[in-house]
Amino acid sequence: MSRSSSVLLFMAGAATASVLFLALHHQRRRQRHQTAPSISQSSHSVSSLPPSLEHELFARVVSFFGEESFPPIQKAFVVVVGLGGVGSHAAHMLVRSGVQRIRVIDFDQSPV
């Protein structure tokens, strides 16, 4: 693996970790500032995957962030601007991390 490939993979991983950390931080901040008791949310997933397959796919993310922190990651809305070398890897890793709502923006126009 070349040095530039390693740097790109590191940057994509760092971007993914940053987005997940921010989603978790905002969720915890919202929970601290709520005065009314929150209604417990169901464990129903938006994805069409069987629960056993979903559990297998995201087991490492859940083990890293914890059971209670994974639903906010799934419900996070992330915008990825630019799908070049870094953005495409970041979007890929966000999906693999369980984020279900992603908007991608790229104005690159290649000749047909």
Rank of each mutant, 00 (worst) to 15 (best):
22 L>P: 01
86 V>Y: 00
110 S>Y: 06
15 A>K: 01
7 V>P: 00
94 L>G: 06
3 R>K: 11
36 A>S: 13
42 S>D: 14
47 S>R: 09
5 S>H: 11
24 L>H: 03
111 P>K: 06
105 I>G: 06
103 R>W: 01
18 S>E: 14
63 S>W: 04
52 S>C: 12
82 G>K: 10
89 H>T: 05
54 E>R: 13
74 Q>Y: 06
37 P>G: 06
63 S>Y: 12
85 G>D: 07
80 V>F: 02
29 R>A: 11
45 S>R: 14
59 A>W: 08
87 G>N: 02
100 Q>R: 15
36 A>F: 06
112 V>R: 09
25 H>F: 05
68 E>T: 14
61 V>N: 14
1 M>G: 10
94 L>C: 07
51 P>L: 09
28 R>M: 13
56 E>A: 13
104 V>M: 11
40 S>A: 11
55 H>F: 09
52 S>T: 15
18 S>R: 04
42 S>W: 10
11 M>K: 10
31 Q>W: 00
8 L>E: 02
9 L>F: 06
22 L>H: 07
47 S>A: 12
55 H>R: 15
112 V>S: 12
68 E>F: 07
49 L>T: 10
31 Q>Y: 03
37 P>L: 03
73 I>S: 04
84 G>S: 09
54 E>F: 00
43 S>K: 15
47 S>V: 06
112 V>C: 11
107 F>W: 04
30 R>D: 04
109 Q>N: 09
39 I>K: 01
57 L>R: 05
3 R>Q: 11
2 S>N: 13
31 Q>C: 08
70 F>C: 11
104 V>T: 08
54 E>G: 07
8 L>Q: 00
39 I>T: 11
31 Q>K: 11
81 V>N: 03
53 L>N: 06
19 V>C: 11
57 L>S: 05
99 V>Q: 07
96 R>N: 15
13 G>F: 03
107 F>H: 13
95 V>Y: 01
101 R>T: 13
54 E>I: 10
20 L>Q: 09
63 S>F: 10
23 A>L: 12
33 H>W: 07
87 G>D: 01
8 L>Y: 02
41 Q>W: 05
22 L>A: 10
70 F>Q: 13
8 L>K: 07
11 M>V: 09
35 T>C: 01
73 I>N: 02
13 G>W: 02
53 L>W: 04
86 V>P: 00
25 H>D: 09
26 H>L: 13
58 F>G: 09
43 S>W: 03
59 A>M: 12
15 A>F: 02
59 A>L: 15
16 T>K: 07
66 G>V: 12
37 P>R: 00
48 S>E: 13
44 H>N: 10
75 K>I: 05
56 E>V: 08
89 H>S: 06
21 F>W: 14
58 F>K: 09
